[in-house]
């Protein structure tokens, strides 16, 4: 990684932390409030690519582990990683990587806008929802003994909110690609 890559990784980790301070947004038609921080996985992958996006999340998880309250609502510490939802936190790293991998393959300069939107949206869903859920549910089932199908059904409550996040992340990623592209220069 070049010095610029390290700076981008650090700045993006700082953005992820900052998103945790934005007030959560409640929409009438979905059961759970939308927190800006959980959008970070999709944003990191689609904006700075697979390797750097995942590295940003390694940094965030590291900060959580060493006891900095960087998660939404000022949470942090090893108890977050060892707790029942720790799988989602570890899953962020892999989610950002997969999001970036797909975005790098699907989105290129000079494509029609619509194709870029679709590419970012698919990447966000695959990495930011499917991969993160896979890690989250696996650890949840292991640590609490909840049967897999029940945990999966319980997780469905979060899907509408996560789809909205994928839309917002897609719009933001495309805005950054147009305004200050970094995805093509992937590390």
């Amino acid at each position: 990684m070049t010095t610029k890559d390290i700076v981008l990784v650090a700045l993006f980790a700082a953005i992820i932390v900052a998103l945790g301070f934005l007030p959560p947004i409640t929409l009438a038609f979905i059961p759970v409030p939308i927190t800006a921080q959980s959008m970070g996985v999709m944003l990191a992958g689609t904006i700075i690519g697979a390797k750097r996006g995942a590295a940003s999340y390694v940094l965030v998880v590291l900060m959580v582990a060493i006891g900095l309250p960087v998660l939404a609502g000022g949470a942090g510490g090893l108890q977050k990683i060892m707790g029942p939802t720790g799988g989602y936190i570890i899953g962020w790293i892999f989610g950002a990587f997969v999001t970036g991998l797909i975005a790098e393959r699907l989105v290129h300069d000079g494509q029609p806008e619509v194709r870029q939107y679709i590419g970012f949206f698919l990447a966000s869903i695959a990495g930011g929802i499917i991969v993160v859920y896979a890690f989250g549910i696996a650890w949840l089932c292991f640590s609490t003994g909840t049967p897999f199908m029940k945990a999966l059904i319980g997780n469905l409550a979060f899907v509408p909110g996560d789809l909205i996040k994928a839309v917002i992340a897609t719009l933001a990623a495309r805005a950054v690609l147009a305004g200050y592209p970094m995805l093509p220069s992937r590390a």
Partner: peptide, 21 residues
Amino acid sequence: RPLRAIGPLIILTLKDADAIA
């Protein structure tokens, strides 16, 4: 709208990367 500001916020932040590096 906070959520709509995310794109510009990211551009404003990452724009400094070259200078910092």
